[in-house]
Design a protein around this nucleic acid. Structure first.
Lengths: 199, 199
DNA sequence: CAACAAACGGACCGGGCGGTCAACTTGCTA
DNA sequence: TAGCAAGTTGACCGCCCGGTCCGTTTGTTG
């Protein structure tokens, strides 16, 4: 491929400043945070933003990619944990906490994300599947749920809580616990619809 | 209060056309559907929109109000159902189906909704509480969940599924079932956080 | 230290948005 | 059916947004 020449020192620094500022700004003001505001927050000219990220969508994609990678790393470590059930719960906790600290939910489904993101998502999904398989074999979760179920439910605790205007900071743990109880084998009722396929 | 003179026939008709068109448009294009497009879809001039709803936010509020009322009516009927557990599940199903047919999730939290909405929300919340109390007394749900828990979890099945780009139409039922299993007494683990108060 | 490419900044552009207004049309009522 | 208030309309306004461009600054390299 193209051997990308290393960025100049100031350019590399500005890139990081921009990513951080953009994440904060999106978290505070939602998806229509303006590029100009992001630039100002990073202490940088607007043109600089577009030099690093040709499009606002490219900027969003960079942030999302970063988030997905974090989850992938966390999940991969948990694959070797002693208790597979606890590991799955821990993964869900990490995912929720990440989303809690900086809610960027809206940009996930920002249509037509790049192929790079699709790929990163794929590897993360595969790791989640492995986590679930281990937990299932261990009898920690019911037989009829799959990795995709976890992917789908992953951010539910936070999303659900964020409807409340003034929720206590750890309330999401309550709903994670309820949902996780629904994933356990004890007292499980048959599910009315087959799981979605790996995309 | 002000005895509101009845609308002229054409005005009343246009008001309904507008509400319908706006709901469709918001469902399709998200919160930034433009007033101009809504007007066009309703076959009406842009000025007419603003005559009926002084602000785009007022239009949104009117739609949300309608949604809440529908739920309130459904919930009130279910209060007299024979099986309280089934009634609660049915309420959740109705809520999810409503959201499925026309996803307006984003406008729920549209900040600072009018006092009218706050009030309508209040009555709906109280009915949900009653539904849950009945179900709990009947042993259909675990002792440690409250009406607010149901309010919080109400739309989770749809919200969660809507992350998937091409989800089968009834997939949400799967997640409603999982979550409902988490609400049952059988195999319940203690919850790590107290429930949120009635707002 | 000289010289050049890389990076920067911010004025600028076209477009679409929410919202206004004054001229026009239409349903109601006496 | 005449008259008038209620209702409609679309051109118009100001604003802000994503994105461009070019003159200027700055890090790097020999």
């Amino acid at each position: 491929m193209t051997p990308p020449r290393p960025l100049r020192a100031d350019a590399a620094r500005n890139r990081q400043l921009l990513l951080a500022a953009a994440a904060d700004e999106f978290a505070e003001r939602g998806p229509e945070a303006s590029v100009a505001d992001i630039a100002r927050r990073a202490g940088v000219g607007k043109g600089t933003v577009f030099r690093h990220f040709p499009t606002k969508d490219d900027l969003i994609a960079a942030i999302v990619l970063d988030r997905i990678s974090t989850l992938t790393v966390a999940g991969r470590e948990l694959l070797t944990a002693a208790d597979p059930g606890a590991a799955l719960l821990e993964f869900l906790t990490v995912a929720a906490r990440q989303r809690d600290q900086l809610d960027l939910s809206f940009l996930q489904q920002a249509g037509g994300l790049g192929a790079e993101i699709t790929q990163a998502q794929g590897t993360m999904f595969r790791i989640v599947h492995a986590l679930v398989d281990r937990a299932r074999e261990h009898g920690a979760v019911r037989a009829d749920i799959t990795g995709m179920d976890i992917v789908v439910l992953m951010c539910a605790p936070i999303d659900v809580v964020s409807q409340l205007p003034d929720a206590p900071p750890d309330l999401w743990q309550r709903y994670l616990a309820i949902i996780f109880d629904g994933l356990r084998p004890a007292g499980a009722h048959p599910l009315p619809h087959p799981p979605p396929p790996l995309p």
